[in-house]
Write a protein that binds this DNA or RNA. Structure first.
Lengths: 203, 203
DNA sequence: ACAGTAATCCTGACACTGTAAAGATGCCGA
DNA sequence: TCGGCATCTTTACAGTGTCAGGATTACTGT
């Protein structure tokens, strides 16, 4: 039987997985490095070699978080009917991620614990941002439109992750999505002029 | 001379002030109760009597935070020209507070450390929410409009507090306010029908 | 095949943290 | 005045992050 070899084999990945579980249970503020090591069945100082310190581990976890975040958005955008619908779906994906992994969401967007000067992290974050810019560009939007879509998507997601939006929680899933869609649509750049006046059937 | 009497006099208020300073310097995640006690020039166990534990202190601080938050919004709304402008100014106040006290902002909106079941805290939070609902009601809006204004205001504020909106940081203050105003205006319920079509002069 | 080196992981230690228990101090009412 | 009580301190303990040094294993060149 494998009696726990001295060398783990892939401790780095195991620690990242343990860290994600720890994060999901305790949140960013209750995150403990020693507890992560215990989860991975390894000594409390083992993570140091792979990640340096706690900040290093959380930075690596944030990188992974950004990738999963983008994956969630991409998955939703797959089934888009046009560019406008695509942007709206991105916003819904934003919310989906925040609800599915609230702690990870907080880590990558509202925590000071990761090192945001680390090149891998800035790269991962920039990738997500560039993707957003692409969505708006496709609609002929400008900087203001980018801020509008991002801020609104982020606001809905962040408030939902913190259970602040009680109004939405009472509704059914269909009702919720409908409300959010209508909110997100307001943020998009105005449709082509010949259709801009048609009340609510831009889709 | 006052040679440090055994009884402080108003330690509760002094601790709250020290806690706010600690929060501003170290952030929610670096907040230390012992360090707060040291700031107030008192033993590390002194806060226990007034606030129970760290959560109690942070809860009390969050209550104060909500009050200041609302004060910031109110101040901005004072100089509003009409209900529409009032709602926009509220959003700008939201941002102002987040930039002036990012850590306090995080504490009341994105932290799991305060006890959100505490009646004083839920009361303070509800007051802010009710005020927002009032703003939307005055414009003839519904639940969706409340979410739209809140989420967008919150998104801009939260992203700005975390220095994520590099786009805005480059601009001048006037440019920034103009962009945000235009974003917030999209979230408001449509203006009265006879003015709805006028391109950009709803103000 | 084998020795040396580097990578990996562990043990032990230190300073710091939050919390609880028990003692010291001074205020205030009976 | 004096006892009770709120207030604050001291002491203690378990848990945390990080560092230094030692143990174990894998890998590399010969």
């Amino acid at each position: 039987m494998t009696e726990k070899p001295y060398h783990h084999g892939d401790l780095r990945a195991a620690l990242l997985a343990a860290a994600e579980a720890e994060l999901a249970e305790k949140g960013v503020e209750g995150f403990s490095l020693r507890s992560v090591a215990k989860r991975a069945g390894v000594s409390h100082a083992a993570p140091a070699h792979h990640f340096g310190d706690t900040q290093g581990l959380l930075t690596a976890l944030a990188v992974e978080g950004f990738i999963r975040f983008q994956d969630t958005l991409d998955a939703r955008e797959q089934s888009a009917t046009d560019d406008r619908d695509r942007a709206v779906r991105a916003g819904l994906g934003y919310l989906e991620f925040a609800l599915a992994r609230p702690a990870l969401f907080r880590l990558i967007f509202s925590s000071a614990r990761p090192d945001y000067t680390a090149p891998e992290l800035t790269a991962a974050a920039s990738r997500a941002y560039d993707h957003l810019v692409g969505l708006i560009r496709a609609l002929g939007g400008d900087e203001t439109d980018v801020i509008a879509l991002w801020a609104t998507s982020h606001g809905i997601a962040d408030l939902s992750a913190g259970n602040k939006l009680r109004t939405l929680q009472g509704k059914s899933l269909a009702e919720r999505e409908a409300m959010i869609r209508s909110v997100l649509l307001r943020c998009l750049p105005a449709a082509a002029p010949e259709f801009a006046r048609i009340p609510d059937r831009s889709l």
